[in-house]
Write a protein that binds this DNA or RNA. Structure first.
Lengths: 358, 358
DNA sequence: GCGCTTTCGGAAAGCGCTTTCCTGGACTAG
DNA sequence: CTAGTCCAGGAAAGCGCTTTCCGAAAGCGC
């Protein structure tokens, strides 16, 4: 059995309340009394019981982080950044993942609620907003990702897609591309829709419009299917911008099966700059979202609301940035030749453990 | 403020204790009384306060999962499997990551201890064993990964490397390889050492011995550096088995920079079968560790110890299996030609956010 | 040196739950 | 009809902490 506060009090020859006050800095205590307490704490390796503490406070030192899937390569850095921020302020993180499953989401929300988290960062746009409303109704601060506007107890972090996408489009145009296609994420996904708008707008800004727009799941298999549709059309584009890196990877794989070389015959770009995007062949030209910052910012956005400083949320914005690699090059000169697919290439599993839906 | 048990009791016109007993099934209650209670629970959407519960029980329904880094692609499936298992038995998971940082580890352990977890699965071999002893001394059940033997409160899950490695070596030999090199993980890492032994033993079983053994960090940059050392030697091997997939990916990248084609000029194999290993070019021939099972088994191993059924730990074993893909082929016929590295290839960051140290 | 304020330690209630102990009533047996 | 036996449900203590309130001692001005 670990030591309790009573043990510390006895050891330091003070009362229970004094120990608590010293530990929490909640009222002035004579220096040598405080010293005695601290000594006792150290001597006994005393650790306050967090459950008792939370019960007594009837509010916790917990903040939740809700992601869709742990296995999604988009999240790890966010988790780290968030936790770092939380720890720095003496908060603890409760990590929940929904796996895009309503039962699991339900359970996660209940858990969050019952644990008395002070705030929750919802780093997934594929999450049910009415469930979120339940949290807010319970007085829990929220921070969303690409949802607006800020309101009471709700902050919002907007990703400035236009910045990175602007650079990307300029990059493609400088390479000589004039026919650019888009494989975007599912239209039902807020983030994917916003990204697609940014892409179209950037093209329009240069007097272009997308030669084709295809929708795809944010996954490798989706990208493979989508690119087949793109190149099957007559006069396919010389460059395709994908809604995330996984789509792009799937596209590259499928193209290889079709005998189309990337970037020689067609340029492909990703989005997110997940860790593996520099490992695939060719390394992906993509746009980076500063994900560690995103996690840290998420906590920063939560903090004023949960520490009672300012209940009203605020808007945050994070930039994006082009990361040029090897999957883009000057456009091909002749027409695109496809090899009749013989299905001898890499099998791409239909259901991947690591999707990319965020 | 959420409803409390008192509210439920009032609503159901029974006493507090009856509610508790009904909820926990801890003594016989007349059917209609129980019904009334359950109705009240549903009507109020009552959720017990976990902190109060844990305080009262002075033991929690928590099990810890300790991993080294969230960002490590080795862990996501393990986390999922473990959580699944825990939830099924009504336990909750506390996820901690050490980031291979002693301060963070210390904090994680303290946290686990203070939260009163009943057991901890330590799914990282790069973790300080004396710290683990502290947990065990506190009566917390442990399950390790590739550490033996089982003892009081300590179970162990052994990965049967020999199975998959045996298949892998046979695969290489059938392709015609006779000179096989090894790039293993750091010798200081239990798991890496065990894997290396399995590789050597499998080769020996076929009358071969490794033509060269190089040690590397379990990371992409380590693999790149290691393969350079391997091919720099005279008469380099025609196939190289790597200690994990990241090493293999680094090796493939570095070889490409050197103008060496994989698998045409040299065969490279990985280990772990992380998600991305089928996405890199060429898709990696590797050996799969059933990681979701591993996570689930970790909880299963913990369960008898924490439920008081059996304090003594047990030994578990999980198989491994060859996953043949495209990074292996018949050996080259002529000598290995290197292009003088012009450093124009992909830059491989020295410090990756996602290492592979487990 | 007296009455005032200030300072700081301690007692005690309460957070929401579990669990032991007890009691009042319904039943059974003689 | 009475004594003994069950059985369902309630009262209350306690888990380890926070926080309010109280009071003793010290400090101060006059």
């Amino acid at each position: 059995m670990p030591y309790t506060m009573k043990d510390v009090a006895r050891h330091a020859r003070v009362s229970l309340s004094t120990v608590s006050h010293v530990l929490n800095n909640t009222r002035y205590t004579a220096p040598d009394t405080a010293q005695r307490v601290m000594r006792a704490v150290r001597d006994l390796h005393y650790q306050p019981n967090p459950h008792a503490r939370r019960l007594a406070l009837s509010r916790s030192d917990l903040v939740g982080l809700l992601v869709s899937e742990i296995a999604n390569p988009f999240f790890p850095e966010i988790i780290n950044g968030f936790q770092q921020g939380a720890w720095q302020q003496g908060y603890d993180m409760l990590l929940s993942h929904t796996e895009n499953d309503s039962e699991r989401t339900e359970r996660a929300i209940r858990n969050l609620l019952a644990s008395g988290v002070r705030g929750v960062a919802v780093m997934s746009s594929a999450v049910d907003l009415t469930a979120m409303e339940r949290l807010r109704a319970a007085g829990i601060a929220l921070v969303f990702y690409n949802l607006g506007p800020a309101q009471r107890l709700v902050s919002n972090i907007r990703i400035d897609y236009s910045l990175g996408i602007g650079q990307l489009v300029r990059h493609l145009i400088e390479l000589g591309h004039r026919k650019v296609g888009i494989i975007s994420g599912p239209a039902s996904n807020r983030t994917a829709a916003a990204l697609q708008r940014a892409m179209v707008k950037a093209l329009t800004g240069h007097g272009l419009s997308p030669s084709i727009v295809v929708e795809s799941k944010h996954r490798v298999d989706g990208g493979a299917a989508a690119i087949r549709a793109v190149v099957a059309g007559e006069n396919p584009p010389s460059a395709v911008m994908c809604g995330n890196d996984l789509i792009a990877m799937g596209a590259v794989s499928a193209l290889e099966e079709l005998g189309v070389r990337v970037p020689k015959n067609i340029s492909i770009t990703g989005f997110d700059d997940i860790f593996f995007s520099h490992l695939v062949r060719p390394p992906l030209t993509t746009v980076r979202i500063p994900r560690e910052d995103l996690g840290r910012t998420a906590f920063e956005a939560l903090y004023p609301m949960i520490s009672g400083r300012r209940r009203k949320g605020t808007e945050w914005e994070l930039p994006t940035e082009l990361v040029p690699r090897k999957s883009t090059a000057a456009p091909r000169t002749g027409p695109l030749r496809l090899r009749r697919s013989d299905f001898s290439g890499t099998k791409i599993p239909q259901k991947n453990s690591a999707g990319g839906e965020v």
